[in-house]
C-alpha cells in the first residue's frame, strides 16, 4: 500500500473515533476534530467558490469581454460595505436583488410544483371498480381534505371543523410515524459504512500486517 494512503486511513480512522467520542461526552478529541473539520471544509468551500464561480463565471466572462458580469461583481463587492458604518446601506441592494429573485422564482414554481401537481394527484374517481381501490381513494381524499382543514388558521375549531381538524391530526401522526420508520434504514446504512471502514479497511489490515511482521 502506498504510504500516503496508509496515512490517510489512519487519519480518517482517528477522526472517525474522535467524532464518535462525542456520543459519550464533549472532549478534547472531539474539539480537535471539530475545529479541523471547520477549517478544512471552509477552506474547501473557498477554493470551490473561487474556481467554480469567480474564475469560471467572472474572470472567464471578463476575458471574453462580457462586460455585463461587472454588475453582479459590483453587487458582490457592495456586500463588503457592511464593514463601514456609513455605507452599510449599500449592501441592501444586493440583498434586495437576491430576495426579489427568491420570491419571484418561488411563487410560480411552488404553484406549479406543489399546489397544482398535488391537487392533480389527489383528484381521482372515488367510485371505481373494486372495493379496495375505492376505499383507498376515499381515505386519500379524506386525509388530504382533513389535513388541509387542520392548517386553517382563521376558522374557529368547533362542530364539524373540529372533527375534521382532529382527523387531520390523526393522518399527520400516521405520516410522522411512517416517515420516521421509513428513514431508519437509510440512516443505519450510513453507520454501517463507517463501521465497514473502521473494521475492514483499518483494523483488519493493520492486524494482518502486525501478524505478518511477527509471524514471519
Amino acid at each position: 500500500m502506498i504510504w500516503h494512503e496508509l496515512l490517510g486511513i489512519w487519519l480518517a480512522a482517528g477522526f472517525t473515533l474522535a467524532i464518535y467520542s462525542f456520543l459519550y461526552k464533549d472532549n478534547p478529541a472531539y474539539k480537535l476534530a471539530e475545529h479541523i473539520y471547520v477549517g478544512v471544509s471552509t477552506g474547501y468551500l473557498i477554493c470551490i467558490a473561487y474556481w467554480e464561480v469567480i474564475d469560471k463565471k467572472v474572470i472567464a466572462a471578463l476575458g471574453q469581454h462580457e462586460w455585463i458580469v461587472i454588475i453582479p461583481t459590483l453587487m458582490g463587492l457592495a456586500m463588503f460595505t457592511r464593514f463601514s458604518k456609513k455605507a452599510s446601506w449599500v449592501s441592501r441592494i444586493p440583498l434586495a436583488f437576491i430576495i426579489g429573485y427568491t420570491a419571484g422564482v418561488a411563487a410560480p414554481n411552488n404553484i406549479q410544483g406543489l399546489l397544482i401537481e398535488h391537487s392533480y394527484a389527489t383528484i381521482n374517481p372515488v367510485l371505481t371498480a373494486g372495493f379496495a381501490p375505492q376505499l383507498n381513494a376515499i381515505i386519500m381524499l379524506l386525509g388530504v381534505t382533513c389535513g388541509m382543514i387542520y392548517f386553517f388558521f382563521s376558522v374557529e375549531r368547533k362542530g364539524p371543523i373540529k372533527v375534521a381538524a382532529r382527523l387531520g391530526i390523526f393522518f399527520l401522526m400516521i405520516y410522522f410515524g411512517v416517515a420516521y420508520g421509513y428513514m431508519v434504514m437509510g440512516r443505519e446504512s450510513i453507520l454501517i459504512g463507517r463501521l465497514n471502514f473502521l473494521i475492514l479497511d483499518w483494523i483488519k489490515p493493520t492486524l494482518a500486517a502486525i501478524g505478518r511482521l511477527f509471524g514471519g
Binding site: 437509510g186 459504512g193 463507517r194
Partner: peptide, 8 residues
C-alpha cells in the same frame, strides 16, 4: 458522498 456507504 453522503450516499457512498449505500452506493459504493
Amino acid at each position: 458522498p453522503s450516499a457512498m456507504p449505500e452506493m459504493d
